[in-house]
Structure formats: C-alpha cells, structure tokens
Computed example of a mutant assay.
Amino acid sequence: MALAAELFAVWLFGFSALISIINPLGGALVFHGMTRWLTEAERARLARAIAINSFIVLIVALFVGVRVLGFFGISLEALRLAGGLAVAVAGWRMLNEETDEARQQRDARAPAALDTAPLDRMAFFPLTLPLTTGPGTIAACIALAAERRAAELGDILVSVTAALLIALAVGLSVWVAYANAAALARRLGPTGMLIAAKLAAFLLLCIGAQIMLTGATDALRPIFAAR
C-alpha cells in the first residue's frame, strides 16, 4: 500500500509537470491549423504517430538523461536549479502572455510549406519535435529523473514504473487532444483556451519553483550539516 501511494505521488507530480509544459490543448490547436488540409482519418493517423513518438522521446529522456549529465560532469543539484528555473521562467512567460490573434494566425500559417510533405515525415518533425516534446520537455524529464535516487528494490520499481506510466499518460493525452483537435477548437472557443492556458502556466510556475527548492535544499544540506 505504501509503495502504491508513493507510486501515485511520483506519477502525479511527473505527469503534472510534463503535461503543463507540453500543453496538449494548446498544441492541439496548432496541430489543427497545420493539418486542416488533411482528412479526419489522416489527422487521426498522424495524431497516433505523434503520440507514439512523444512516448519514445519521454522514455529516452527519463531513463538516459541523467547518465548523459554524468558523462558531462553536471551535478544533480545544478540540473535541478537550472531545469527548475527554465520551467519557472516558461510558466511565468505563459502566465503573462498577452492574447494575440494575429500571432496565432501567423503561427498556423508558418508551416504552410509542409502541406505537400509526407505524413510520416511530418509526424516526427516538426509535430513531435519541437511542437510537442521540445527542449523544455526534455529538460524537465531529466530534472524529474534526477529527483529520485534508487537505493532499494522498492525505490527502483517505483521509479521505473512511474517513468513508464508518466510517459504513457502523456502520450495518451497528446493522442486524445490531437485526434480531437477540430472538435476541441470548436467547443472550447477563445475564452476556454485562454483559461486552460493560464491554469497550466500557473501550475508550471509552481512546479518550477518546487524543483528549484529541491535543488537548493540538496546543495545547502552539506553546508548546514558541517556546522
């Protein structure tokens, strides 16, 4: 029971962090603008491919990202502080971002050159990288993986299972949002999308602050322990 509760807590924190950064609702509207020339069946197939690609990117970042940091000699505390700051800054910018219909229309028109591109090529670039799982998402995955230090078998099981469930839940969220992008745009409307974006931005800001607080605590603990 204790492991199940710990697993749920780790999953909830990781899922909240990544879903706030990825923001499938906002990404779904951009996805819809980039694929309006596709049929419903083609859009659904493309959404499924993006979800699978996103799952793979998240798994790689969650399981291998920390080892890459070790290769370059970057400490976990520095990663937490830098990653948390990047996440918090992104949340702050989103929270204070002004609505700009002209900018949204320009972003939707920007990838017009992709209209004749094969769907398989579009699925990874640019629709998975950088539209869905960009550098901020990868940095957050590394920070989340660094949050846990597996010392016992139970910790290892929780870490591995949580990582798989986080990536799976995020991938499914992306799939559902992108597959229903047209209906989502009609039902939420500008006001609903604005509210969802602001709530996600505030949550992102809080998560970034929590990651930085953890990094600062770990960095200062040896100093206070020596006194």
Rank of each mutant, 00 (worst) to 15 (best):
S173P: 03
A196W: 02
L95H: 09
M94C: 03
A196Y: 00
F71K: 08
D218S: 10
V158M: 05
A201V: 06
P190R: 11
H32S: 10
G14T: 01
G70N: 13
A146V: 01
E6T: 06
F71I: 12
A4S: 10
I74P: 01
D218Y: 10
I19R: 06
M193Q: 13
V10W: 05
L12P: 00
L7C: 00
M1R: 11
T132Y: 06
T191M: 11
F124T: 00
T116C: 04
A151N: 11
G189P: 07
C206V: 12
R186K: 15
D120G: 08
A108W: 07
G84H: 00
L213H: 12
A209C: 12
P135R: 04
P222M: 01
F125V: 14
A139D: 02
I59Y: 04
D115K: 15
H32N: 11
D107V: 13
R221M: 08
I166D: 06
P126Y: 00
L129K: 07
D107A: 15
A88V: 03
R221P: 00
I156N: 01
A9I: 05
L38F: 07
A110N: 09
R186G: 07
A9G: 05
R186C: 04
W11I: 05
G189E: 04
I74S: 01
T132P: 03
D115A: 15
L46V: 03
A5H: 11
A4I: 12
F202H: 08
H32A: 12
E40K: 14
L3H: 13
A163S: 15
L62I: 03
V68W: 12
V57E: 02
R93C: 06
A146L: 05
R121C: 03
L184I: 12
E98L: 12
L188I: 01
D115Y: 11
V174M: 02
M1Y: 06
A41N: 12
A226W: 07
R80A: 11
L29R: 08
T39N: 07
A146M: 05
L25S: 06
F202V: 15
N53E: 00
W11C: 08
T161S: 13
L38G: 05
T99K: 14
K198A: 06
F8M: 14
M212D: 01
R187Q: 11
R109P: 03
T116G: 07
L194W: 14
R103V: 09
A5P: 02
I21H: 06
L7H: 06
C141S: 07
W11E: 01
F224L: 10
F224C: 04
A108E: 10
R93W: 09
D120S: 14
R187W: 14
G33R: 06
G215Y: 01
R45H: 11
A61F: 04
V176W: 15
V10S: 08
M193I: 09
D107Y: 13
R186I: 04
A145K: 00
L204N: 13
T137F: 04
E42K: 14
P118T: 08
V174N: 01
L38Q: 10
L38K: 10
S54T: 09
F72T: 01
V87D: 05
A51D: 02
L119Y: 07
S75T: 13
D120T: 13
F72E: 03
P118V: 03
